[in-house]
């Protein structure tokens, strides 16, 4: 059952009023322009035991995504495809408002939007993840872990998932028998077969104003959010409106144009990371540049 949130982080009235006053003047409390993302910091493969991983820091929102591959049975209606599973964990260390326990509706929504954004445009070539047709396939677990919550979990989670997938290597397997397949995780060579990259662009709507990449303080004040999943060819591969107010047609159209423009920037960022991964590979995560 879905309930009106009653345990939102408290935002002091004075801060709320300041944010609103600034918005009316075309300014944001952290000094950004309406169309700006916060700074994005990326580390690729920070978790070598995962088949692929990426840490993304979007302002103070920190997400790490790990990809694990296990062998299992395909879905009965998709016997010639591997299986994709996306999960999101909002662990209690990430926010004073998170409690331990199974994923709540917000975590489930984030995971499902990312799942659809990857599945619908066939971002992952699942048909190449078959080991024994109709019997044994790779099950790809995309586990998104929120470490610090400062708004716009979805875009940070999508970016870290997309990067982790790009750096995923498939372990080598020896098929002894149908029920005896040995996975050698020491030997990971084949990259995960991908067709294209996808990013999500989340835009906060406050009256007629459109705020790209809303921070947590902004999320608590604005009317609603629209998330656009956009692939590298500029197609829209997913949409999700969240929040407790409706939106006008003109507002939606303006947000759509803005999202397509911002998507280009994020796709360029992914390209930059893929072309120069050494610049984004860190020896350790205990870095002042990351947490400082």
């Amino acid at each position: 059952m879905s309930t009106t949130p009653t345990k939102q982080p408290v935002i002091p009235t004075i801060k709320r009023e300041t944010i609103l006053r600034l918005l009316k003047r075309g300014e944001r409390i952290d000094g950004r322009k309406f169309e700006d993302y916060r700074n994005i910091w990326i580390a690729v493969n920070p978790i070598p035991k995962a088949e692929g991983s990426a840490l993304v820091k979007l302002g103070n929102t920190t997400v790490v995504t790990g990809i694990k591959l296990e062998i299992g049975a395909p879905y009965s209606d998709r016997p010639y495809e591997g299986v994709l599973q996306v999960h999101a964990e909002f662990v209690p260390l990430a926010s004073p408002t998170f409690e331990p326990g199974p994923p709540d509706e917000d975590a489930i929504e984030v995971a499902r939007v990312i799942d659809r954004s990857l599945r619908e445009p066939h971002a992952i070539r699942l048909e190449d993840l078959v080991i024994i047709p109709t019997k044994k396939v790779w099950i790809l677990f995309n586990d998104l872990y929120l470490l610090d919550h400062d708004g716009n979990i979805l875009d940070a989670g999508m970016l870290s998932s997309m990067l982790a997938l790009n750096f995923t290597k498939i372990p080598s397997v020896v098929v002894e028998a149908e029920d005896n397949i040995i996975i050698n995780r020491e030997q990971k060579e084949k990259p995960l077969p991908l067709n294209l990259n996808v990013v999500t662009i989340t835009i906060g709507v406050f009256e007629e104003n459109l705020l790209v990449d809303p921070s947590l303080d902004e999320e608590l004040i604005i009317d609603s959010r629209i998330t656009f999943a956009v692939d590298e060819n500029g197609r829209i591969v997913g949409l999700q409106k969240t929040g407790m107010k409706g939106i006008k047609q003109e507002t939606f159209e303006a947000a759509l144009d803005l999202a397509l423009r911002k998507a280009k920037e994020l796709h360029e960022l992914i390209g930059k990371v893929l072309n120069n991964p050494q610049n984004y590979t860190k020896p350790s995560l205990a870095l002042e540049e990351l947490w400082g």
Binding site: D231, I236, V237, G238, L239, Q240, K241, I247, K248
Partner: peptide
Amino acid sequence: DEIVLLQLNGV
């Protein structure tokens, strides 16, 4: 004249 639910599953 307000859109209150909007999702897209597909391309």
